[in-house]
Deep mutational scan, measured.
Amino acid sequence: MDSLVVLVLCLSCLLLLSLWRQSSGRGKLPPGPTPLPVIGNILQIGIKDISKSLTNLSKVYGPVFTLYFGLKPIVVLHGYEAVKEALIDLGEEFSGRGIFPLAERANRGFGIVFSNGKKWKEIRRFSLMTLRNFGMGKRSIEDRVQEEARCLVEELRKTKASPCDPTFILGCAPCNVICSIIFHKRFDYKDQQFLNLMEKLNENIKILSSPWIQICNNFSPIIDYFPGTHNKLLKNVAFMKSYILEKVKEHQESMDMNNPQDFIDCFLMKMEKEKHNQPSEFTIESLENTAVDLFGAGTETTSTTLRYALLLLLKHPEVTAKVQEEIERVIGRNRSPCMQDRSHMPYTDAVVHEVQRYIDLLPTSLPHAVTCDIKFRNYLIPKGTTILISLTSVLHDNKEFPNPEMFDPHHFLDEGGNFKKSKYFMPFSAGKRICVGEALAGMELFLFLTSILQNFNLKSLVDPKNLDTTPVVNGFASVPPFYQLCFIPV
């Protein structure tokens, strides 16, 4: 009986604490739906499609509103004006990374994606500088992407125009580009180590996009005490870190300090320079996690976009025909596509942009946080508050993009057929937390897609009208449904 009384008292205290925290903070924060004790607004949000729920709530509470995930307040920004004001106009104040408990377990605050403060700034600055020195957006990395595009075309030829699921092959190409940047090595598509790495990356994007992960991140005790797919994700990350550590040891034994070959060499050189400046942010643990982040951000996002792009091109054969006509006119058949071609191919450029806009790969991006107490639109948001960005509300804005739910390359073309930029184009987020590999991803999408369409016609196994382009999961990332196609050599 005594234990029951204690339990009831504990629960009562928890409920009172929950109510007090919510009521004391709500006077400062933007308005929002009334949260339930302990669980907050979790029942009012469709976990399978958070973005749709945010759109519905914005119609009631406006472009800036507050939700509670458990006891934790989260300020939501919906629509271009609110997102721009926060991420661009007040970029420094909104540059923090929001709480992501599962990532905390995986990387302990290291790396480039989930770190904060001085650690994040130094690692991000170093990573950007190193990638630029190796030619991100310049010639040397373009050579690597072109080489991988040629290998991709050869792998597709091996399908002999038979029906195939493109998931694996389209994942190999961007993964190999990242391998060449980090390890100075590309792998054969049949290499077992490479296959294991690909498998872990593919599993992780599916797990991260599941409703279960949303629950884990908002009720963090689940991570330590409950079984579930989150444990598989943590094991996959541990596998990748151990693999990278092996490569780091190989580099330490063979590195030429006067001739760095890749990202690992550059990081080890930085560690050597910083060894007298303790404590340094440049450690082996930081290198492991930064490399894992580059793999995660640079492989599955690009391969998922490529997979979605081919599905949309199957669905819209008239678009595919126009792209192939432009390829034939500008590039021809006797040389590989290059980035200089893009400025002469406005329709193809528009298609690449429209694919990214339409699929809305990361509907709410990753959570941000404010780095200080900030007054925002007459609300006071306390330091450390998590900020949720609705990228969907920007990419699918119906004023900027008429009929935003329709796939239409003319969203990025003017009346004369010239490519038209849009400030609403934010597939990689915006501001200080914009994806480090934005330029690389854009290069890969253009070169891989043009190389495929230069060499193959795409054949659907069903009537294009019957192809479903609805994402199968739409949590962290929008993942396309399973499909097969035939690559018919031109």
Score class of each variant (00 low, 15 high):
3 S>T: 14
3 S>N: 13
4 L>N: 12
4 L>H: 09
5 V>E: 11
8 V>I: 14
9 L>Y: 14
10 C>Y: 07
11 L>V: 14
11 L>T: 14
11 L>I: 13
13 C>T: 13
17 L>H: 14
21 R>K: 13
22 Q>R: 14
27 G>V: 11
28 K>G: 12
29 L>T: 03
29 L>V: 03
31 P>S: 07
32 G>V: 02
33 P>Y: 03
35 P>C: 07
35 P>Q: 05
36 L>S: 07
37 P>N: 04
39 I>C: 06
40 G>S: 02
42 I>A: 13
42 I>D: 04
43 L>V: 11
43 L>S: 08
44 Q>W: 08
44 Q>G: 11
46 G>T: 08
47 I>T: 15
48 K>Y: 08
50 I>C: 14
51 S>V: 08
51 S>D: 10
52 K>N: 13
52 K>V: 10
55 T>C: 12
58 S>F: 04
59 K>F: 10
61 Y>T: 02
62 G>D: 02
63 P>Q: 11
63 P>Y: 03
65 F>E: 02
66 T>H: 02
69 F>T: 06
69 F>N: 06
71 L>V: 14
71 L>N: 15
72 K>G: 05
73 P>H: 01
76 V>E: 03
77 L>I: 14
78 H>V: 10
78 H>G: 07
79 G>C: 03
81 E>C: 08
81 E>Q: 10
84 K>A: 10
87 L>K: 04
90 L>D: 14
94 F>T: 12
95 S>D: 09
96 G>P: 10
100 F>M: 13
101 P>Q: 11
103 A>W: 15
103 A>R: 10
110 F>T: 10
111 G>R: 00
115 S>G: 10
115 S>W: 02
117 G>D: 15
118 K>N: 10
118 K>S: 15
118 K>R: 13
119 K>Y: 15
121 K>Q: 13
121 K>H: 12
124 R>F: 03
126 F>G: 04
128 L>S: 12
131 L>G: 06
132 R>N: 07
132 R>T: 06
132 R>D: 00
133 N>Q: 12
133 N>S: 11
135 G>P: 10
136 M>D: 09
137 G>F: 09
138 K>N: 13
140 S>N: 09
140 S>T: 13
141 I>W: 05
144 R>N: 06
148 E>T: 00
149 A>S: 06
150 R>C: 08
151 C>F: 15
152 L>P: 00
155 E>Y: 14
159 T>G: 04
160 K>H: 10
161 A>E: 11
163 P>I: 05
164 C>A: 03
166 P>V: 02
166 P>W: 01
167 T>F: 06
167 T>Y: 06
170 L>K: 00
170 L>H: 00
171 G>Y: 06
175 C>D: 00
175 C>G: 04
175 C>I: 07
182 I>A: 02
183 F>E: 02
185 K>R: 12
186 R>T: 03
189 Y>L: 02
190 K>S: 10
192 Q>S: 12
192 Q>Y: 06
193 Q>S: 11
194 F>T: 01
196 N>P: 04
196 N>H: 11
197 L>E: 00
197 L>F: 09
199 E>K: 09
204 N>F: 04
204 N>T: 14
207 I>L: 14
208 L>A: 15
209 S>F: 08
215 I>A: 07
215 I>F: 15
216 C>M: 15
217 N>S: 15
219 F>G: 07
220 S>A: 11
220 S>H: 13
223 I>Y: 15
223 I>M: 15
223 I>N: 08
223 I>E: 09
226 F>H: 04
236 N>M: 02
237 V>L: 09
237 V>M: 05
238 A>P: 04
238 A>D: 12
239 F>I: 09
241 K>P: 01
252 Q>M: 12
252 Q>D: 05
252 Q>V: 08
252 Q>E: 11
254 S>N: 14
255 M>T: 09
255 M>C: 13
256 D>K: 09
257 M>S: 13
257 M>C: 14
259 N>L: 07
262 D>T: 05
263 F>Y: 14
263 F>K: 01
264 I>L: 10
268 L>P: 03
268 L>R: 03
268 L>K: 04
270 K>S: 10
271 M>V: 07
272 E>T: 09
272 E>L: 08
273 K>N: 11
273 K>P: 06
276 H>G: 13
276 H>A: 12
276 H>M: 14
277 N>P: 07
278 Q>F: 10
278 Q>L: 12
280 S>M: 09
280 S>G: 07
285 E>R: 07
285 E>M: 05
285 E>V: 04
286 S>I: 09
286 S>R: 06
288 E>H: 05
290 T>D: 03
291 A>N: 01
291 A>H: 00
292 V>R: 03
293 D>I: 05
295 F>K: 02
295 F>S: 01
296 G>T: 11
297 A>P: 03
299 T>V: 09
300 E>D: 03
301 T>F: 00
304 T>W: 07
306 L>F: 01
307 R>E: 02
307 R>S: 04
309 A>F: 03
311 L>H: 01
313 L>W: 02
319 V>H: 11
319 V>T: 08
319 V>K: 04
320 T>N: 08
320 T>I: 06
321 A>M: 10
323 V>Q: 01
323 V>R: 02
324 Q>K: 14
325 E>V: 10
325 E>S: 14
327 I>N: 02
330 V>N: 10
330 V>C: 13
330 V>I: 14
331 I>G: 01
331 I>L: 11
333 R>D: 08
334 N>H: 13
335 R>T: 07
335 R>I: 05
336 S>I: 11
337 P>N: 01
337 P>S: 09
338 C>N: 10
338 C>P: 01
338 C>H: 08
339 M>C: 07
340 Q>M: 13
341 D>Y: 08
341 D>T: 02
343 S>L: 12
344 H>E: 13
344 H>Q: 14
346 P>Y: 04
346 P>F: 03
347 Y>A: 02
348 T>M: 11
351 V>S: 03
354 E>H: 00
354 E>W: 00
356 Q>C: 10
356 Q>G: 07
357 R>Y: 02
358 Y>N: 03
360 D>Y: 04
360 D>T: 13
360 D>N: 15
360 D>R: 07
361 L>W: 03
361 L>R: 08
363 P>S: 06
364 T>A: 08
369 A>G: 07
372 C>A: 14
372 C>V: 10
373 D>A: 04
374 I>T: 14
376 F>D: 02
378 N>R: 07
381 I>Y: 00
382 P>E: 07
387 I>T: 07
388 L>K: 04
391 L>A: 09
392 T>D: 12
393 S>V: 01
394 V>P: 04
397 D>V: 03
398 N>L: 08
398 N>A: 14
398 N>M: 11
399 K>R: 12
399 K>S: 13
402 P>E: 15
403 N>C: 10
405 E>K: 09
406 M>T: 14
406 M>V: 14
408 D>V: 01
408 D>Y: 02
409 P>D: 02
410 H>S: 14
411 H>S: 02
418 N>Y: 08
419 F>T: 06
421 K>H: 10
422 S>T: 12
423 K>P: 10
427 P>S: 08
427 P>L: 03
428 F>V: 05
428 F>Y: 10
428 F>H: 05
429 S>D: 05
429 S>G: 15
431 G>S: 06
431 G>T: 03
433 R>T: 00
433 R>F: 00
434 I>V: 15
434 I>G: 14
436 V>A: 13
437 G>A: 11
437 G>V: 03
438 E>T: 13
440 L>G: 00
443 M>E: 02
445 L>T: 11
446 F>W: 15
448 F>S: 00
448 F>T: 01
449 L>I: 07
450 T>K: 01
451 S>T: 11
454 Q>D: 01
455 N>W: 04
458 L>A: 01
459 K>A: 07
465 K>E: 15
466 N>P: 01
466 N>V: 13
467 L>P: 00
467 L>Y: 03
469 T>D: 08
469 T>N: 03
470 T>K: 12
470 T>I: 06
470 T>D: 08
470 T>H: 09
472 V>N: 09
474 N>T: 12
474 N>H: 11
474 N>S: 13
477 A>Y: 07
482 F>N: 15
482 F>S: 15
484 Q>M: 07
486 C>H: 07
487 F>W: 00
488 I>D: 14
488 I>G: 02
488 I>H: 08
